[in-house]
Design a protein around this nucleic acid. Structure first.
Lengths: 197, 197, 197, 197
DNA sequence: ACTTAATCGAGACGGTACGTCACGTCTTTGC
DNA sequence: GCAAAGACGTGACGTACCGTCTCGATTAAGT
């Protein structure tokens, strides 16, 4: 094994810090996250954190990327349009209910603080939206092939609609959307919009 | 006279603090808002702030309510569905581009930090969503009466859809939605969903 | 009675404030004396305090004068030199053990804080030393007349020696001198110095 | 070298804080001493002060001990009793005229504030009195050997008499005793008391 | 295997802002 | 018209974290 004796270095250490960050996020939320608490939980020195990330915001974004990579999923449409959409939306909602959600909240909370945030927002978009767009696009393409989905449903703003609703719910409610809310989003908004007439 | 000599008290003082808060929000954003800076700008003591609001989050929420009250608008639908929706959405977007938007961002950023946040989220919902729902409902009702809007467009999740899109854009982009984006939201999502057959 | 109805004024009020000051001094000491606590205990407004005395130091000195006046005692030498000295020293020590002692401590503690302290020190001297000098001088004069005391014992520095020892003990020990210590002061220092050979 | 680059630690820092404390004491006195002013003058953070000493009183006492240690003097009696006493008393008076005197004043001013002051008074006694007692005892022993001093002059209360007079003068006058006053103390009190008949 | 340089855990440090407390001033209200 | 009550601007308090830096101890890489 790589972590045989005592002191961790390089990627081992980085992983341990990410895990500690995500645990802290889950326990106290982004607004109450303390660099010292992360360092202590990871049994690392503060300098080891600041050597890698400039501040709390950078650390949390990196931790979010880390977890996103760790859980990135392959998904294959089953052909049941509503079922597939519900399944993916539930997966995203569950995700938002954990530390990843708190990371996103912090990410969003810091936006607008400085002029250099354009790049940060850009990364939030490509890092968070793009993977989801691909999954939803795949589901919709499948539906289009079956004739159950309108062809123009592939425009980005529509493909990203379901995650937009979920994220907005999570951000403004303080917790992830429950199943019943996902049902309503599907039946009242997403399906009427994409279903072939 | 009410403000004869020097020192402000009660509502006068409260107003001055709110103005200072909103100016600071506009300049440095919620994440960099300092109670001492607000106090200094308002020429008030910190104790006068803490006597009224428990912490930064409470102050900012109160300031958001203050401004909301100050700018609350009457709006009368003109009969042009798309024009009315565009007009109101533009108004909201402009609003989000100012200090009020930063207040919302901070409000959202602090959610999930403590178990007592349910009440805060509840207020965010009733304080922010409800007034907007009324305006959009009025527009949609007008459209229903004209036959240009489907009757079931009055369900809350749909009525609140346009603000949801605007808020999500503002929160995740770091700036309010420009006119072109509002156009796309309308043409790709809102109008297809609410328009009669 | 003078305090029939409700609100006190002038001397009545002043007396009540002095009493409150002395009680606070006895309970918490000069270093922990708070103007607000005095006002609250006296059921007076803070403005009523500041109208009369510039600050804590002035109030406490005034309270010390008040109590000194209130307890100023006539003393007639009995002819027993040691007994008389012991009696008066014990009386002074008892006095120092109460709020008056704490007032003196505060008085002393503030000296040297500003250049204008010369007058304060001057008053401390005339207010505290002079009355005691008179008493001790009377005792010593009586002894001189009896031939038990050396004639040159009337020099101020000697007349004031016993109070000096008591005050120094109180200030540096934190409590008034007990009887045994007074005995030693008398037998080792004061009596050998003033007794006729 | 030990102090290669920039930041001070441990004893270096402690010394710098003591120096700053003594300078502040000399300039503004104990009653106007501010922890923030000391920290600023020492170019240290407030936390570095509070990590070492619980409050202003502890800091000042520690600074007094530091200076006492720094200036602790060896003294060898010359054989001229009055000259030796005058010399040492002048030295003490000079000392009281500086920051050390203000430290003592503060020390005294805080006594009686809490029940735990017994230990503080105890330390004041051993820290301040004992070293001086040793010097005066040495002078008196020398005089006893020469036959110019009475053997019973070595009792503690007598040995400490001269410092007691000096300290009392300093505390109640606001400034250290000038030479003329020391002369009177010697000629009227100390010498008559200890001189062999 | 044995330096040697890099990296780590630990935590002291200078600093900033926190939220609290008491100051001394001022306004309001009631007697 | 003065007193009580207490709100206010001010500023120091003592605390909590920040981000930087120093110190030994540990460890991987080069000899």
């Amino acid at each position: 094994m790589t972590e045989s004796t005592g002191r961790r270095r390089g990627d081992d250490l980085e992983r341990a810090i990410f895990e500690a960050t995500l645990e802290e996020l889950a326990e106290v939320g982004y607004a109450n996250l303390r660099m010292e608490a992360v360092a202590a939980r990871a049994k690392a020195g503060k300098a080891s954190l600041y050597k890698r990330w400039a501040d709390r915001a950078h650390l949390v974004r990196a931790a979010a990327r880390y977890q996103a990579t760790a859980v990135e999923t392959a998904f294959e449409p089953s052909g049941d349009l509503r079922g597939d959409l519900f399944k993916v939306m539930t997966f995203i909602a569950n995700y938002q209910g954990g530390p990843y959600g708190e990371a996103i909240r912090g990410w969003v909370g810091e936006l607008g603080a400085s002029p250099a945030d354009e790049a940060v927002a850009e990364e939030l978009r490509t890092r968070i939206e793009l993977p989801r767009i691909r999954i939803f696009a795949k589901i919709l393409e499948h539906g289009i092939a079956q004739g159950t989905v309108r062809p123009d449903a592939l425009r980005p703003r529509i493909v990203n609609l379901a995650p937009t609703l979920l994220t907005h719910y999570f951000l403004t409610r303080g917790h992830a959307a429950p199943a019943q809310v996902i049902d309503e989003m599907l039946d009242q908004i997403v399906l009427p919009l994409v279903a072939a007439d």
